[in-house]
Design a protein around this nucleic acid. Structure first.
Length: 283
DNA sequence: CCTGCTGCCTGGACGC
DNA sequence: TGCGTCCAGGCAGCAG
């Protein structure tokens, strides 16, 4: 293998796995106390009530890569960035880890720890549910619910590469570097293809592939690149399904040609030059 | 408005 | 062994 990656890189499937693993432990619990060990991971106000202290968790939602804990009145958005995780800690004697920045104490004696060594993630308190709705309205639709017509409209007049477009959370929410590369490989589309050049048919194929790939990744519990685990310490298995990510310079599993690696849309990008040719289209 | 680029941040890999 | 350097990437902010 080439580069060994050292981050969990939570994208939609990983965030969904975390949500699914935590939901049953958190919903219905009252947060008795919140300990904020690093103020700067909270964006905006960080009073105990902003972090849901004294409130009952009534739901856990997800949009794209963002999670939200909801109480009766408020909400708290959790963004994992690229190294963030949420961990349910049941053993009352276990000490917090070095980068456990926020700890929620629950009424059943369990705790929820927000851990984020690189601090690209963070927490955003929402005064009410409407604020959360408004925040998520600014993002594109969740990748699992994205419609062909939406992509067609958003990409119609853009000059950006399809890779940059799919990474843009305002166009579609939930994809990161891993799943965009996997998706484009699956669809035989070169990552540098201008977004506006894709036909409705190609976009329809892309959306079907997006759902298929994300769903199987969720079923596999996400991708564990190095140390990713869901909320209750289980790793994912989808990394075994990766066709291109982390395989730059290795043979394509479809045609055998060496996979190319370059910087596209500001990101390290792996693709097969033979299976994903850059098609020049007359304008 | 649109787009691309920079910097934030840590720790694992690698070279000397 | 230890130290310095590079690199990964989501996202906000900024410049052209």
């Amino acid at each position: 293998m080439g580069t060994v990656y050292n981050a969990s890189m939570p994208e939609l499937p990983e965030v969904q796995s975390i949500r699914q693993s935590l939901e049953k432990h958190l919903i219905g619990r009252v947060i008795t106390r919140v300990v904020c060990r690093r103020r700067d991971v909270v964006h905006g106000p960080a009073c105990p009530k902003d972090l849901l202290s004294g409130q009952r968790v009534i739901a856990m939602h997800r949009h794209g890569k963002q999670l939200a804990l909801l109480s009766e009145q408020r909400a708290l958005v959790v963004q994992l960035g690229m190294s963030g995780s949420l961990r349910l800690v049941v053993d009352p004697s276990s000490a917090p880890l070095k980068h456990d920045h926020v700890i929620w104490h629950l009424d059943d004696a369990a705790r929820l720890h927000f851990h984020d060594p690189r601090r690209f993630g963070g927490l955003s308190p929402m005064a009410d549910h409407a604020c959360l709705t408004q925040r998520w309205k600014k993002l594109g639709p969740d990748a699992l619910a994205c419609k062909v017509s939406h992509l067609q409209v958003k990409l119609a007049r853009t000059g950006r590469s399809i890779k940059a477009c799919l990474l843009d959370q305002q166009i579609v929410a939930g994809l990161g570097n891993i799943y965009v590369d996997e998706l484009l490989y699956n669809c035989h589309i070169h990552p540098q293809t201008p977004g506006s050049q894709l036909s409705r048919q190609e976009l329809a194929r892309m959306i079907r592939a997006m759902r298929r790939i994300l769903k199987s990744a969720i079923e596999a519990g996400g991708s564990t690149i190095r140390d990713y685990v869901n909320g209750v310490n289980q790793p994912g298995k989808y990394q075994q399904g990766h066709q291109v990510y982390g395989r730059g310079g290795h043979p394509c599993r479809n045609c055998g040609q060496q996979l190319g690696q370059s910087l596209i849309g500001g990101r390290a990008t792996v693709f097969c030059p033979q299976c994903q040719p850059l098609v020049e289209k007359a304008t």
